[in-house]
Design a protein around this nucleic acid. Structure first.
Lengths: 108, 108
DNA sequence: ATAAAATATAAGCAAACAATTATATAAGAG
DNA sequence: CTCTTATATAATTGTTTGCTTATATTTTAT
């Protein structure tokens, strides 16, 4: 894990909205539409946050029909393991999951 | 440790120059003048970085004559403990410490 | 008291960031 | 094929950040 990756992951995590996104994903996949409700910002804004987390290697995605589910990658760096641990302790996940996509196609 | 503190500390750590500052302090106090040499930026820029780290509760200071020595606080948050651990593994500390202030007045 | 040295603060500016609205893409339904 | 739905990308804008230069503050030396 080099310098630039440390900086990239720290920058990706250093935003309250993205902290909430990460907290939402601690228990598994979350659909983009749910994130919009949770954060109260526009859908494109959520997409841009997710892209930043993805580019830092923190999350990954899975397409389910027209929906897209995001989740934490399996092998987190030691840095992110530590950060995620602390985020989980604080930020309550209030993902409503009222999207009808929930749990569709999870066996793929 | 609340949300805002997590965000504040992450933001404070999410900068390559400040990562280097933290790495420099891993072995103890460092004088501001040494940081200027290490980072290759102006003295006011270093001062501003140090202030940001201080306001996030990550470092503290001690005045020694006209010099000022900065060091990591003793009781780091769990979040910062994890981050500092990873920073130490990567970022080589090349603090020259050619400042004549070194080790003056350390018994205070 | 004056001058010099180390650091901090202020002001200004360019680059990066996070939001928005508008538009494009991709998949499913009819 | 067309319409709708979910998401992504593009363009724009206001805010924040990190640097610079200039100035202020504080301490020591003369």
């Amino acid at each position: 894990m080099e310098n630039t990756l440390i900086e990239k992951q720290l920058k990706a995590a250093a935003d309250l909205n993205r902290i909430k996104l990460l907290a939402c994903m601690k228990n598994g996949e979350v659909c983009v539409c749910d994130f919009v409700d949770v954060l109260g910002i526009s859908q494109p804004a959520v997409s841009q946050h997710l892209r930043k987390l993805k580019e830092a290697g923190i999350i990954t995605e899975r397409k389910v029909g027209t929906w897209k589910h995001y989740r934490l990658v399996e092998n987190q760096t030691p840095l992110m393991k530590g950060i995620l641990e602390q985020i989980e302790l604080i930020q309550e996940c209030d993902c409503s999951s009222d999207c009808e996509c929930t749990h569709i196609g999870e066996e793929n």
